[in-house]
Amino acid sequence: MLQVEHLRVQYGALAAVNDLSFSVSEGQWLMIVGPNGAGKSTILNAISQGVPYTGTIRYEGEDLKKTDAATRARRIGMLSQNHYVGYAFSVEEVVRLGRYAHRSRLFSVHKEEDEAAVEEALECTGLKDLRRQSVLTLSGGELQRTFLAQVFAQSPQLLLLDEPTNHLDLVYQKQIFALISEWLKTPGRAVVSVVHDLSLARAYGTQILLLHHGKPAAFGDTRDVMRPEVLNAVYDMDVAAWMRSMLSQWQPETE
């Protein structure tokens, strides 16, 4: 579905991503993990054509550089990390913007389809009651869900998520990951997401791309990559031991 070949992104003298190749197929959830500054978000930005890059990124064999913005947006949806809206748009207005790529300039030919997509997106993110509310008054979680609804309304086949649960409390973390797993169940879809939390990556990801200083340290099925020797080398610590010690805090006897 998505093939990335020899991707290189340069920020000034620094190569944020260097000679990276990977691919994503239908039904997969690729988790991009790695320490801070490994170039995780940069990959997503390159796929969504937000940063200049060399190498090729193909979607269904078509070079994304040569695809026009609307066509790209109908196939690939991206949820970025930070949302700051300057004006008091309503939740519904922001979600409706997701339909942009599906509508022709002058006539809304697919009006029913658009309405249905917006309603469905609002429904599954639980925003129906907030639809008229101004986005300026939303909590962080509500805002994140609003933009998730926007990207759902966009009806893409490939979803790019940059730290989808960053700054969100556990309830929303659980909610959002559940939502995305649900979304992925429809055939023909795939997800690429950047996460910090290795436990989440392990729990939800089908594939893992482990990055280190802009280079792939490992790429493959979750259980192949999530091996102690691989992780420990990249993070320069005993990852599994730390995770276990964290979890041990939650032993039943400590109730």
């Binding site: 026009d68 913005a69 790209r72 991206m78 970025s80 949302h83 748009f89 913007l97 933009f147 990207v151």
Partner: peptide
């Protein structure tokens, strides 16, 4: 007005 990055992501040229 929502954001230039957002505009690009939803398919605005």
């Amino acid at each position: 007005a929502v954001g230039e990055d957002n505009a690009r992501e939803i398919g605005v040229n």
